[in-house]
Simulated scan of single mutants.
Amino acid sequence: MRIDERIEQHYAELSPQEQKAADTLLDRLGDIAVYNAVELAHLSGVSKATMSRLFRRLGFSDFNEVKEHARLVRSSGMPLGPQLSDSGLAAHLVQEQDNLRRLGASLDEERLAATTTALAVAPTVLLLGFRNSFPLALHLRQQLLQCRPSVNVAPQPGQSLGEELAGLGKDDVVVLFGFRRRPAGFRGILQAASATGASTVLIGDSSARRLASDASIWIECPIDGAYAFDSYGAAMSLIGVLANGVLNSLGRAGRDRVRDVSGMFDSLGEIEG
């Protein structure tokens, strides 16, 4: 059980002092690593002995075990901790910059060029995203469709994947967004996509490293957030880089497509100037 679930289960049994300590833990789960047990006791207005007693009642041997548990829960993508406040904006921006820095450090120019070239020349591009990854797949499709046709996204509501994968071949590309808290069968989907003969591009955070060997191209993109929720700012930035690379790879054909799409917007009156 997560620590917040343990607190909820035992809360009514706790003494008033232990409840004060538990409330402090809940308020600071997202950044608990910056505190020690004495500081938490002080923040709670209880003794260190009360704080230690609370840890044991929740099933932890000591505060180090509490911190490790909170770290593991947070690294799995589980929202955990306080909401962002005005005073926390600086921490958020620092984390965003660090995510972008780590993305840039891990993505070499050769792999980026191979990815954008594959996306540019493939007869069909299929983008797969589940849960939090689905909006990323949608956004990449919207960007790629500006400069090339035949870009599909799956799974669509109420639809299965079999008909999307059937018919793909060695010249096609499947991009899979595999950020943490993926569906349980994600590896099987990646392997099925690879079995079609299509090139597979896997984009995910560090939790997807164990899946990288099943993909043609692996791109690691950090999504660490300063607070409770993951941040997809770096992932959206990566999408912009990929789409721009595809447009450059296509050259005049891509520019002609952009012009045709813009003309269609105008004729339909879809886009406000």
Rank of each mutant, 00 (worst) to 15 (best):
R56V: 09
L72A: 14
V66W: 01
F63Q: 04
S44P: 03
K48Q: 09
V46K: 07
R71A: 10
G45D: 01
E39P: 00
A70E: 00
S47R: 06
F63I: 07
E65V: 09
L43F: 03
A41F: 04
D62G: 12
T50P: 05
G59W: 01
M51P: 07
R56F: 05
E68I: 06
F60W: 06
F55P: 01
S61G: 03
V66S: 03
S61F: 02
L40C: 10
G45N: 08
R57T: 00
K67T: 08
R71N: 03
R56H: 14
E65R: 12
D62C: 10
R57P: 00
M51Q: 13
M51F: 15
K48V: 08
A41S: 14
K48N: 09
D62E: 14
V73S: 14
E68Q: 13
A70V: 15
F55C: 13
R71W: 06
F63W: 07
K67V: 15
E68N: 12
S52H: 13
L40G: 05
S44D: 08
A70T: 11
N64G: 15
R57I: 01
L43M: 11
M51N: 07
S61A: 12
L72K: 14
R53C: 11
V73H: 10
L58F: 04
M51G: 11
F55D: 00
R71M: 06
K67C: 10
S47P: 06
S44T: 06
M51T: 09
K67Q: 15
F63K: 01
A49E: 11
S44E: 05
V66Y: 01
F60T: 00
V66C: 03
L43Q: 07
V66K: 02
L72Y: 02
R57N: 05
H42N: 12
L58C: 04
F55L: 06
L72I: 11
L43D: 04
L54T: 07
L43Y: 04
H69E: 11
E68G: 02
R53H: 14
N64L: 14
S52D: 12
R53F: 04
M51Y: 14
E39T: 12
T50C: 07
T50G: 02
S61C: 02
H69G: 01
F63L: 01
V46C: 02
R56Y: 04
S47L: 00
L58W: 08
A49D: 13
G59V: 03
L72Q: 14
T50H: 03
G59F: 00
K67I: 15
R56L: 12
F60N: 02
L54P: 08
M51S: 13
H42C: 10
F63Y: 13
R53K: 15
L54K: 11
H69T: 13
H69N: 08
